[in-house]
Computed example of a mutant assay.
Amino acid sequence: MRTVYAFLLTSVDGYHADAGGGTEWFDIDEEFEEYSRSQEGQIDTIVMGRVTFEMMASYWPTPEAYAEDPVVAGFMNDLPKVVASRTMSEHAWGPTTFVPDGIAEHVRSLKEKPGKDIAIFGSSTLVAELLPTGVVDEVRIIVNPVALGQGQSVLGGLAGPVPLRRTGLREFDGGNVLLTYAPVLD
């Protein structure tokens, strides 16, 4: 069975975006880029919510993205994407499947098929929805050394506590810290 992991970015005070929805505050250094590139060979499917999808679709297919990071641009553009959305049903950035309802069941069915890991990039609202269902096997959170004071909570909307067990810790030289957790579900 394939592993489904969520990959989230947060400030030290728990926000994935500032009060205006921006993420420009996040420090992306070379070590972070190397970690991002290392996911290329591990995954063959990307899952996102609509907001994250639209943000990524506006950047990754551009010449600027290919110039700045051809490896990540390559897999972001080429891999199949699954998008949880009730308002979108098609988009030029493909290959993409839109799932209006039943995203947990859809991801669970993908998980049971042969293949590499499935990554949920960003999409903290979607992760908050999926985490209690047991479909997410691992949560990887990069904590950036900045306090925003206000913003959008990294797992805002979580419908109750989900116990997690830390399975990994990596400190990046630039100050980012990667925390890896596995849900502890009954």
Score class of each variant (00 low, 15 high):
89 S>A: 10
110 L>N: 07
130 L>K: 12
176 N>V: 06
172 F>M: 14
19 A>L: 09
7 F>A: 14
78 D>K: 14
166 R>S: 08
94 G>E: 08
112 E>V: 07
5 Y>K: 12
37 R>C: 10
60 W>I: 09
114 P>Q: 10
176 N>D: 05
27 D>H: 12
68 E>K: 14
18 D>H: 06
12 V>T: 12
120 I>Q: 01
20 G>M: 03
113 K>H: 08
80 P>I: 11
94 G>Q: 08
140 R>P: 00
150 Q>I: 02
118 I>F: 05
144 N>T: 09
133 T>S: 14
1 M>V: 13
27 D>Q: 09
55 M>I: 15
107 V>M: 08
156 G>H: 01
120 I>S: 00
53 F>A: 07
20 G>W: 01
145 P>Y: 07
59 Y>A: 13
75 F>Y: 15
71 V>T: 14
66 Y>Q: 12
185 L>I: 14
31 E>D: 10
128 A>D: 02
56 M>H: 15
33 E>D: 03
163 P>T: 00
11 S>C: 07
56 M>Y: 13
28 I>M: 09
106 H>F: 15
173 D>C: 00
42 Q>Y: 06
51 V>Y: 02
1 M>I: 09
18 D>F: 08
32 F>G: 00
54 E>W: 07
65 A>G: 07
182 A>L: 02
138 E>H: 07
106 H>E: 12
